[in-house]
Write a protein that binds this DNA or RNA. Structure first.
Lengths: 123, 123
DNA sequence: CTAACTGTATCATATCAGTAATACAGTTTT
DNA sequence: AAAACTGTATTACTGATATGATACAGTTAG
């Protein structure tokens, strides 16, 4: 069963996207493996205190990407392979890295300052 | 006159926020200095191909933060001081750094990998 | 002075995000 | 078989984002 222990709400980002990204990042990290059971829409919506429709939207998009599998009446499961993971990893890392580099540059931060910042906030 | 040459649209983030952040980051970088003239609402909306109301929303919020000054019929100007800049810099940097560190950690990326990524995408 | 610019305000409309309440169909558990 | 769970679908509502059209008041440039 995929755990949502580490999930923390972040405002400014749509909830369905946060759920979708949390699962994708778990796949990249290896904490979500092929065949893992997902919490039901109702269970997860209760756990996160959001509407079942919001969870359903995230799950539907994951299914359209072929990353989870659902059948009427039955539980849903993760469907991942090494190739898919490599692809998601690249996609997510490029997005994060490019965004942070662009915004830091916009603020006139130097490369060395940027590296120091990462170290500082890594704890 | 504040330049929007470097402005690039990013989807997923509200346009009024992108405009607001672009100006704030310019203040931190020193490319926007005290007394600088801002493009008029109509001019900027035409340049960015967005609605004048969207630009007005960004300008109104900047004014509420005391970072720009507007008078009916006259042009608008940046109003910044060293203290304000230091405050904005901290606010924006903390937000960016914390977010990127959190998402990279969620993906199981190590500190060294993270630093290598920054270097790679810095160009 | 007049025209052309400024900021500001108010409508109406469309889309997306999120909530809320139900309903129905299939599976699993007891 | 019945109860309790699953996924799926629909309808209605709110708020935020964004567009479009228009209007009015003050400032500046010709």
């Amino acid at each position: 069963m995929i755990s949502f222990e580490q999930f923390r709400m972040e405002d400014g980002v749509p909830i369905y996207l946060q759920i979708l990204l949390y699962i994708k990042r778990g796949m990249v990290a290896g904490t979500v493996v092929d065949g893992d059971e997902l919490p039901s829409r109702r269970m997860l919506s209760a756990l996160l205190s959001v509407n079942p429709n919001t969870v359903q939207k995230a799950y539907r998009m994951l299914e359209e990407e072929g990353l989870i599998q659902s059948h009427l009446g039955a539980k849903s499961y993760a469907v991942v392979s090494g190739e898919k993971i490599a692809q998601i990893r690249t996609e997510l890392l490029e997005n994060d890295a490019q965004n942070v580099v662009r915004t830091l540059k916009q603020m006139g931060v130097t490369r060395e300052e940027a590296l120091a910042l990462i170290v500082k906030y890594w704890e």
